[in-house]
Design a protein around this nucleic acid. Structure first.
Length: 546
RNA sequence: GCGCCUGUAGCUCAGUGGAUUAGAGCAUCAGCCUCCGGAGCUGAGGGCCGGAGGUUCGAAUCCUCUCAGGCGCACCA
């Protein structure tokens, strides 16, 4: 519906301004009385054409053939053009929705653009916590959303298997291992203290016995590090899989070093003149590229900073030929964006090719009281706990019912208590309910595949309202994709379910009247398709029974 | 001190320039099971959109200032 209007408007405007204009804004009016769709385009053009908005609106309207598409076209307020579609046009669209099914709901906005989404990328030093879960939910949903709207997507997890963090993990396990073997060994101050460290130490001992007792950590560091982080990574992979976050590629930081990528990146930047030496360290002149200050790449002691392999990593991504990189980061890393974009630019790509989606920290409450979460101290609620407690669907929906950059308080008590009152069930229930209507309908001999021939004149106002809501789906999806905001789908689904449930209570779908039944079943079918499609993008199931 | 994010109903949040009465869920209160699934439905109460200025025909939305919370500001990761 919106797509058709967009094309009509483009044509009309082109007759006035040969060059045409950029994307034309089309919106659903707040008040139904203002029509089905409306555009403020005339107001936007007012400055450029130096004419009154209403005059421009009139001119645009004069170039539009009402045909059997529009019931009426009005100019209202300061210059809005309001469009009301004819019933026959709307029903024709519904018919297309039914025959084309999911294809009707999506639109190709990506044009095959290659986009890589990197998300979660948790250090393999412990189980995933709730914050990671939010990143996983958002990343997976965004990937699905873009996939559905014509982008080519790769989902990647970056494994920090080379830095200090995994070393600390190894040392923590080493210390516990020594203790298990009856040796005195100081536990590192910054060590990881979670219960899983004890488990790892015990597992290590069970595997290797006392073989590593009485050795210095430095001599056996690799054994402990590799053993521990691979176990943790396996755990993470399992959690993500059960959560429904499936990755295409797993990029190891070590591999970047091994393949000489880090060195090459430094050479590359050096050749381009961004590198300088100062105070015994090697610097990257990011301040030339929009960063606050220059950044160190090689420290005085000869080690790389965290930034350095990360540049190499992004360089590798860009070389794989992606048009856009989306990184999903915790909001506490937002200060890191300018320097990473500077790096992207230094490597010869537009800085916009890196788009960072920030996911705010999840604050945890327990019965209204804040719970301090610290990975090092081992005090945190894991994604696994919550997922097991309230289910992956509810957890995902919880994360996707908010904008990703909004602060989110999760009260674990409330979340558990609400598990049967959660909005996700409202949406799923609508789907299950329709499914059960169809079970009933089949008993009465109605076939789901002959519904496209429904008689749309039988729809009452309430039904027409639902049909229109369904026809708004493609534009909602398009907007969500362009804004990279999957939460819009969540809200849409709640609204759609919110139209269906009251409708269901007021009207019987299956009645003696065969034509009316067919029309209503057609409507139900369409609702079901939309619910299913949106839920699938969110990674939430659409159960047939609950 | 500087920067970023957030401040909307009791709670959790949508809406982020255009059109009288600013929306949803939860919570609270009052109702609805002869009928396709009550994880549902109907209704009620509840808001100077943190505050103050400004731009505009028009501001929750844009600009400035200000208050409050969160997060950043490393030769840490």
């Amino acid at each position: 519906m919106e797509k058709a209007l967009r094309e009509i408007l483009q044509d009309a405007v082109k007759r006035m301004i040969e060059t045409g204009v950029g994307p034309i804004e089309i919106e659903v009016p707040k008040d139904e009385g203002f029509g089905d769709l409306s555009t403020p385009v005339a107001m936007g053009l007012a400055k450029m054409l130096k004419k009154a908005p209403r005059k421009i609106a009139e001119e645009i309207v004069s170039h539009i053939d009402r045909g059997d598409t529009f019931e009426r076209i009005d100019i209202a307020g300061p210059g809005f053009i309001n469009f009301t579609f004819t019933r026959s046009f709307i029903c024709r669209e519904l018919g297309e929705l039914l025959t084309e099914s999911e294809t009707f709901l999506t639109e190709n906005v990506g044009n095959g653009k290659k986009v890589q989404i990197e998300f979660v990328s948790a250090n393999p030093t412990g189980p995933l916590h709730l914050g990671h879960g939010r990143g996983a939910a958002v990343g997976a949903a965004l990937a699905n959303l873009l996939q559905e709207t014509g982008y080519r997507i790769e989902k990647e997890f970056y494994i920090n298997d080379a830095g200090k963090q995994v070393k600390m993990l190894g040392l923590s396990v080493f210390a516990k291992y020594q203790a298990l073997c009856g040796r005195e060994y100081p536990f590192p101050e910054d060590g990881y203290r979670g219960y899983y460290i004890d488990d790892l130490a015990a597992e290590f001992k069970a595997t290797f016995g006392n073989r590593f007792v009485d050795t210095a950590f430095n001599e056996v560091a690799a054994d402990f590090i590799d053993f521990s982080y691979t176990k943790m990574l396996d755990l993470i992979k399992k959690d993500l899989e059960d959560f429904g976050a499936i990755f295409d590629t797993w990029q190891s930081e070590r591999e970047l070093y091994a393949a000489g990528e880090v060195e090459q990146t430094l050479d590359d930047l050096r050749t381009k003149g961004y590198i300088f030496e100062h105070d015994g360290a090697t610097w990257f002149r990011t301040s030339d590229l929009g960063d606050d200050k220059d950044r160190v790449l090689i420290k005085k002691d000869g080690d790389y900073t965290y930034f350095t392999p990360d540049i190499a990593y992004h360089r590798k991504k860009l070389e794989k030929g992606f048009d856009e990189l989306i990184d999903i980061w915790g909001a506490d890393h937002h200060g890191y964006i300018p320097r990473m974009q500077a790096a992207v630019q230094a490597l010869g790509h537009p800085r916009e090719s890196l788009r960072v989606v920030l996911v705010q920290i999840v604050s945890l409450l327990k019965g209204g009281q804040p719970v301090q979460m610290s990975k090092r101290a081992g005090e945190f609620i894991t994604l696994r706990e919550v997922m097991d407690e309230i289910g992956p669907d509810t957890t995902k929906f919880l994360f996707l019912t908010r904008r990703s950059d909004s602060h989110l308080d999760v009260d674990i008590e409330v979340a558990k208590a609400q598990s049967s009152e959660n909005p996700v069930f409202y949406v799923q229930y609508a789907h299950a309910r329709i499914n059960s209507i169809f079970d009933k309908a089949r008993e009465s001999g109605f076939d789901r595949h002959t519904l496209a021939s429904f008689d749309g004149t039988l729809f009452n106002d309430e039904e027409m309202r639902i049909v229109k809501k369904l026809l708004y789906y493609p534009m909602m999806l398009r907007g969500a994709a362009l804004a990279r905001e999957p939460h819009r789908i969540t809200f849409y689904l709640q609204e759609l379910a919110g139209l269906f449930h009251p409708y269901y209570h007021r009207h019987r779908v299956i009645t003696e009247d065969i034509e009316l039944t067919k029309a209503r079943l057609a409507l139900c079918e369409a609702i079901m398709v939309a619910l299913k499609h949106g839920s699938k993008i969110l990674g939430v199931s659409s159960p047939e029974k609950m």
